[in-house]
Nucleic acid binder design. Structure first.
Lengths: 177, 177
DNA sequence: CAGTATCCTGTCCGATACTG
DNA sequence: CAGTATCGGACAGGATACTG
C-alpha cells in the first residue's frame, strides 16, 4: 500500500481505473482512481460523518446493496476503509476509515466549499462548522508558504522530478501559456 | 447560470448526474456532477495548463474523438468552457475556461496535493510551483478564519440553513459521532 | 439485519468511417 | 485538421431473489 494503490484482487483483472492511473503517472489520475466515483464520494461522506454500517450507507446513499458491497470491497482493498467485526453471532461488521482514508477529507471539503461558494449562506444545505466556536467554516485551498489561495495565477502546474516522457512533453514549450 | 447548473439541452434529457445532484441537494453531489468524471478532470487539467484546442486535448488525454466531442459539449453546456471561433475559413474553435470553470481549479489542486503528499518530493511527476519564486508549492485546505487545516477534527459537516428533510435526518442525533 | 448471487438494461467509450 | 455519425462490446448499476 506504499504506493497507495489497490493491493490484491481475485483472479480476474478488471479495474480500468487503476491501469489508467499508473499509465499516466499523474497525481490527478491517481486521485481520481480513489475519489472519481460518485458512490465512493458518498460513502466517504458518510464515513466522515461517523456512519460505519452497511445499512446506514444503504439508507443514506440509496444505492443497491450489490453495488454497495462492491464499492465497500474496493475501498477496503485500496486501504481507505477497514472492515471489522464488532460482534459475533450473528457476526456484524463495521467499516471505518484508515488514516489513509481520512487523508481524503480535504478533497471532499474543497468540493463542498466550491459549491457552497456559489450559494448565498442561507441557501446552503450542508456546511462545515467549527465545533469549537459553532461558526461556519469558509475553507480555502492555499499555498502554505505564502498563504495565498492557489487560484492565484502565479501558481501553475509543471513537471516534477519524477516526470516521465509524457509529462515532460506536456510541459515543454508549446502549450498556450 | 447563477446556480451553476446546466442550462440548456437538446430535446433529449439524459444527464443522470444532474438529476442525482439536485435530488440530493448536497454540495458534494453537485460538485461531483461537475468534476466526477475522469475525462472532465483531464480536460480541465489541460485547460488550466493553457491548452485550448481539440487536437491538443486528444493528444494529451488519449480519448476517442467522439468522446471528446461529447465531453466538450457537456462542459460548454454546463458553463465551464466557452467555445469560440478563433479563425474563419476554415473555421477553427478554441475552448477556454470561463470564470466559473476556473473556480474549479482549487479542487484539482487539492487532489494533486493529496497524491503528492504520499510521495517523496523526488518521486513527484507533476507539481505546483510559484512562478514568482520558482519553488514548489505545498497546498493545504484550511479554515480561513483560524488558518487551521480542515483535517482538524474540530471541523465537521452539518446541516445548513437550506437543508431538506433528508439532510436534516442525516445530521440528527444517531450517527456514530 | 448484513450481505451475496443472478439477471438485465442502459450507457460509456473505443473503433471506424465520413465531412468541410 | 477539427470535428460528427454510427456501430458494437464491455461494464455500471438497479431489481430481485436468496442466505445465515
Amino acid at each position: 500500500m506504499s504506493t497507495g494503490v489497490r493491493s490484491n484482487e481475485s483472479q480476474e483483472e478488471p479495474v480500468s481505473a487503476r491501469v489508467r492511473a499508473e499509465d499516466r503517472e499523474c497525481p490527478l489520475s491517481t486521485a481520481m482512481s480513489y475519489v472519481g466515483e460518485w458512490w465512493t464520494i458518498l460513502i466517504l461522506h458518510d464515513c466522515f460523518d461517523g456512519y460505519t454500517r452497511f445499512d446506514q450507507f444503504e439508507a443514506n446513499i440509496g444505492l443497491s446493496s450489490s453495488m454497495l458491497t462492491s464499492r465497500l470491497k474496493a475501498l477496503v482493498d485500496s486501504g481507505v476503509l477497514v472492515k471489522r467485526a464488532y460482534q459475533e453471532r450473528p457476526v456484524r461488521h463495521e467499516y471505518v476509515l484508515t488514516d489513509f482514508g481520512r487523508s481524503l477529507r480535504p478533497i471532499l471539503v474543497a468540493m463542498a466549499a466550491w459549491r457552497n461558494a456559489q450559494l448565498a449562506p442561507e441557501d446552503r444545505a450542508m456546511i462545515l462548522v467549527d465545533t469549537g466556536t459553532g461558526r461556519e467554516v469558509e475553507p480555502a485551498v492555499i499555498d502554505t508558504a505564502t498563504g495565498l489561495p492557489v487560484s492565484d495565477p502565479r501558481f501553475v502546474f509543471t513537471a516534477g522530478p519524477a516526470a516521465g516522457e509524457q509529462m515532460l512533453e506536456r510541459y515543454r514549450r508549446g502549450n498556450g501559456r
